[in-house]
């Protein structure tokens, strides 16, 4: 097991290094000249050349990558072209918000999705199943910003029940936090809930057909015990493996929701950075999110092995 985890961590590091390398090459492919980007267009030839050397652009690509990487490892992601401040200082508070939103939304999606999925599977063919499965099919692929705009219209403009925008940390003002977060969280989690619900349903229906469930029934166990103790236990294994994948999805989706509800996360910063070609910020964001997602995949794999004895024993 220890060996497995260490080899998975090794694989993850390779992935992150690859991602970081590709993002680093961005600087070279990007049509924008980084010297002008950093110092503005109105500089003299001497100033330009000084800046060129200061950015180490005279050195070969691999050397520059090595220097950049070693700086990054020390926590120095460079200076934002637009905001002229340390990328890390700029990004950290926003990443915290985005991560908070995505992790919360992952928790909600899995909790509610699994619950609803279990209901549909147990009530297969009954009206509960028909209604929930239909809704899940509709919602599973709705873009989060469409849902967000719809919610905004219903709850803020038509009825003015909830605040339209902003974000407050729960330790600052919990009530406000809840009111501000309700709609973004719903918008972000809706498709997640729907797809986890579908996944749980099909996984459970698959397990219910298995011989060992018939065995459990033939032992005279209560239906509830059969469902919770045997069906769910087995059916959740493939659902858990979706964790990494879903988190990646939520980090992406969070940007739209942040945009609609004016939440100060990475969303708006990234849009600005793309439009301004703020390369250091883009690099930092891509690499950091790759780290987060690789970690999520790692946790998923370990969970998978821990939950299903067949995998480690094979």
């Amino acid at each position: 097991m220890v060996k497995y985890i260490s080899s998975r961590i090794g694989q993850m590091l390779v992935t992150v290094v690859l991602v970081s390398f590709f993002t680093y090459i961005l600087v070279d492919i990007m049509p924008k000249d980084p010297v002008y980007a950093l110092y503005g267009p109105n500089i003299t030839q001497e100033e330009y050349e000084a800046g060129y050397r200061a950015l180490d652009l005279d050195k070969p690509l691999l050397v520059r990558y090595g220097m950049w990487a070693s700086k990054v490892l020390r926590g120095d992601w460079g200076t934002s072209y637009k905001h002229h401040m340390q990328v890390w200082k700029l990004l950290a508070p926003k990443i915290a918000v985005t991560l908070y939103l995505s992790v919360l939304s992952a928790i909600v999606s899995f909790a509610v999705g699994i619950l609803l999925g279990a209901v549909t599977a147990v009530k297969r063919g009954k009206w509960q199943d028909t209604v929930l499965t239909f809704l899940a099919n509709l919602c599973a692929s709705l873009p989060s910003f469409v849902v967000a705009l719809g919610l905004l219209y219903l709850f803020c403009i038509r009825s003015q029940l909830l605040p339209t925008s902003g974000f407050t940390w729960p330790w600052v003002d919990f009530g406000k936090h809840v009111r501000q977060l309700a709609m973004p969280l719903f918008a972000l989690s809706l498709s997640g809930v729907a797809s986890i619900c579908r996944q749980t349903r099909s996984s459970m229906l698959e397990v219910i057909r298995q011989d060992y469930i018939r065995t459990a029934r033939s032992k005279g166990l209560r239906e509830r015990v059969v469902i919770v103790g045997h069906v769910m236990r087995n059916a959740l294994v493939p659902v858990i493996t979706l964790l990494g994948n879903r988190l990646a999805y939520f980090i992406g989706g969070a940007m739209f929701v942040e945009n609609v509800f004016s939440i100060p996360g990475t969303g708006s910063l990234m849009v600005q950075s793309i439009n301004f070609m703020d390369v250091p910020v883009i690099q930092a964001f891509v690499v950091l999110s790759a780290v987060v997602i690789s970690l999520a995949y790692l946790v998923t794999d370990i969970l998978y092995v821990a939950v299903d004895p067949r995998i480690s024993l094979d």
Binding site: V19, L26, A248, V286, S289
Partner: peptide
Amino acid sequence: CETLDAIPYIALTMALVAI
């Protein structure tokens, strides 16, 4: 494929749009 999957699709597309 794994490397591509490790980047959130939105970040990936943004980076590519930039290029």
